[in-house]
């Protein structure tokens, strides 16, 4: 072990496999709405749906490499939720999730995304995850990017034991997904700025365009670094049999969320009306970034975790 800040060859291989799969299946613009069944099966065959679970060989770093690629194509469906399930569900359920036969929804007290279509319905409340299925007769709503959402009354059946691990991994993977998506958004805007000419020169020459792009690029790079650091910490603690430590995954999630939203804002400014067409390439990405940024995991508990970490740190350094 040593301080080594680059993906290993196995992690790169996972990333490349997922990128290849996405290129082949998703192609240009991802569809609105839920994930087509054959894509989901493809993810399961690649082994993506079991990453970081107790049975998996790959840990959070492999999962991070995979989710950055999924984010880059705005891959649809409850992918982050599947891996949360891999932390908190029972063994036989985990196996079904890994095979792609069981899908998991993670929502708030009355909203359950991807329902119907998810057999397991979890509810986030503070730092806890509950198994809390929706009663029959729920109302079907449609979200910003046409992902199905159900609204209804939940019955809490049990608080899941490894809630914290599940939520921490969820924050980490949402961060990885958003980093991948935001990198792509910045690249699209930069390409546009470089190639589109106005008044006889590329608009990217203009300080007013180049500077905000560089600014969001810094935000995305820093979120990516935090995500990698959090993934390393996760794997380290898993190897040593410890639970997740508070903070780093939360920092990654908060930073990635902010960076990705800011990237969308700037990219839409740079690309003008071209950024708003359904065919893409920008709109499908930014739509899904907004959707994921408002995930039920939320930001309040992440900030609490961050403060707890700060507190522990100061305790160490100042005795």
């Amino acid at each position: 072990m040593s301080l080594d800040l680059a993906f290993s060859s196995e992690q790169l291989a996972v990333g490349e496999a997922v990128a290849g799969f996405c290129r082949e299946r998703v192609g240009g613009a991802p569809p609105a709405g839920d994930c087509p069944a054959d894509w989901w099966q493809g993810l399961a065959e690649l082994g993506v749906l079991e990453l970081a679970s107790p049975e998996a060989e790959g840990g959070a770093l492999e999962a991070t490499a995979a989710f950055e690629e999924l984010g880059a194509v705005a891959f649809p469906g409850p992918v982050v939720e599947a891996l949360i399930g891999g932390q908190v569900l029972r063994r036989e359920e985990r196996a079904a999730v890994a095979r792609g036969a069981l899908r998991v929804s993670v929502g708030t007290h009355d909203l359950a995304p991807f329902v119907p279509g998810c057999e397991v319905q979890l509810e986030v409340s503070g730092q806890s995850l509950f198994r809390a299925p929706l009663a029959a007769g729920f109302e079907s709503l449609s979200s910003l990017d046409a992902e199905p959402v159900a609204r209804g009354v939940r019955t809490r059946e049990e608080r899941l034991e490894r809630s914290r691990a599940g939520l921490d991994l969820g924050r980490l993977l949402l961060a990885a997904y958003l980093v991948g998506a935001a990198r792509r958004v910045v690249a699209l805007a930069a390409d546009h700025a470089r190639t589109r000419t106005q008044f006889g020169r590329p608009i990217g020459d203009f300080q007013a365009v180049a500077h905000p792009l560089a600014d969001v690029y810094i935000g995305v790079a820093s979120a990516e670094t935090l995500t990698h650091a959090a993934a390393c910490e996760w794997d380290e603690r898993r190897d040593e049999g410890e639970g997740p430590s508070p903070g780093l995954a939360a920092a990654a999630w908060l930073a990635a969320r902010e960076a990705a939203l800011e990237a969308c804002h700037v990219a839409h400014q740079v690309m003008g009306a071209q950024g708003m067409t359904l065919e893409g390439p920008l709109y499908p990405l930014s739509r899904r970034i907004r959707q994921r940024a408002s995930h039920a995991i939320g930001t309040a508990t992440a900030r609490e975790s961050m403060v707890a970490r700060l507190d522990a740190r100061v305790g160490e350094s100042l005795g």
Binding site: S222, L226, A251, L254, A255, M306, V307, R309, L310
Partner: peptide
């Protein structure tokens, strides 16, 4: 403080 902590952490790793 949390916002500052996130940023300083990221600065160090970058």
């Amino acid at each position: 403080l949390a916002r500052c902590a996130i940023r300083t952490e990221a600065s160090r790793w970058l």
